[in-house]
Amino acid sequence: MSRRSFHRAGEGERRQELITATLDCVAELGLQGATVRQIAAKAGVTGGLIRHYFAGKDEMMQAAYEELMAGMTGAAIAAADRGGATARERLRDFIVANLTPPVTDGRTLSLWASFISHVRTDPTFARIHRESYLAFLSALEQLIAAFLRECDQPADPVHCRQLAIAINGLIDGLWLEGTIAGDLFMETPLPAIALNSVEALLGGLRLSDLE
């Protein structure tokens, strides 16, 4: 395991470096192997400095999980936020971003799998997961509503929420299968499968490029 070289950093930057080191250690060693000592070595700091920022390992893991979930959600939201794009393009970009790197890579899956069991047993993990899910759902809901209005279709909030829940479930399933066994989807890439499936949920409204 490589060790980062020491450099002076501000409070916020140092805390972020420790969170990054925590994620690196969990990805390499798992939750049990990612000890405070290992994390300190990875970050190039002392255990005493870690205690300045975090009360203990549990708090570090919670911060790392929050960082992981924010990164996954943020990548998709950022992809859909390009200026001048139509509502159709923004919704399509959002879906594609959830099924392409960096969201779909082995490291992200390993981290997610390491943390997810704690959602049912740790209230802080449960809160982080819930907030991340609701933020993702809200972004998707807004994209769906804008797309429907662009297509001169009714955008009832209840219907948009139901569509967002269904599309999120579809994305989650494809993300999990594709990240575990991506070689099974070489003939038809996951984004194309997702777009075709979402179009069906949207009553045949097109998201893929028109020919």
Rank of each mutant, 00 (worst) to 15 (best):
A64P: 00
L205S: 08
A164R: 01
Q32F: 03
A192I: 13
G169L: 13
D105G: 11
R88H: 03
A194I: 10
G48I: 01
T179L: 05
I128C: 12
Q38Y: 04
R14D: 05
G12H: 12
D172F: 05
A55Q: 06
H159I: 05
R8I: 09
L195M: 09
G178R: 06
A97K: 03
G47P: 04
Q32R: 13
A41T: 02
L31R: 11
G84T: 07
P157W: 09
A126Q: 14
A85S: 11
H129C: 13
S114G: 14
Q142L: 08
V26D: 00
L143P: 02
I39F: 00
M69P: 01
L137C: 06
A27F: 06
T100V: 15
P102M: 13
R90K: 14
Q153V: 05
I193S: 06
V198N: 05
E28I: 05
H7G: 06
A146P: 05
C151T: 11
V158Y: 04
G83I: 03
R161N: 07
T188N: 11
A55N: 03
G83M: 07
V96Q: 06
T20I: 07
T121E: 12
I19N: 04
F54Y: 13
E131S: 08
A9D: 12
S132L: 03
A55V: 07
L109D: 11
S138K: 10
V36A: 12
T86S: 15
G74Q: 08
G12T: 09
R8L: 10
M1N: 02
D122E: 06
D93S: 14
A21S: 09
E11N: 07
Y53C: 03
R107V: 15
A194E: 13
S132Y: 01
A9W: 04
A145V: 11
F147K: 04
R120V: 08
L163V: 03
R37Q: 14
I116E: 15
L109F: 13
S110G: 15
A76E: 07
T86Q: 00
Q62P: 02
T179R: 04
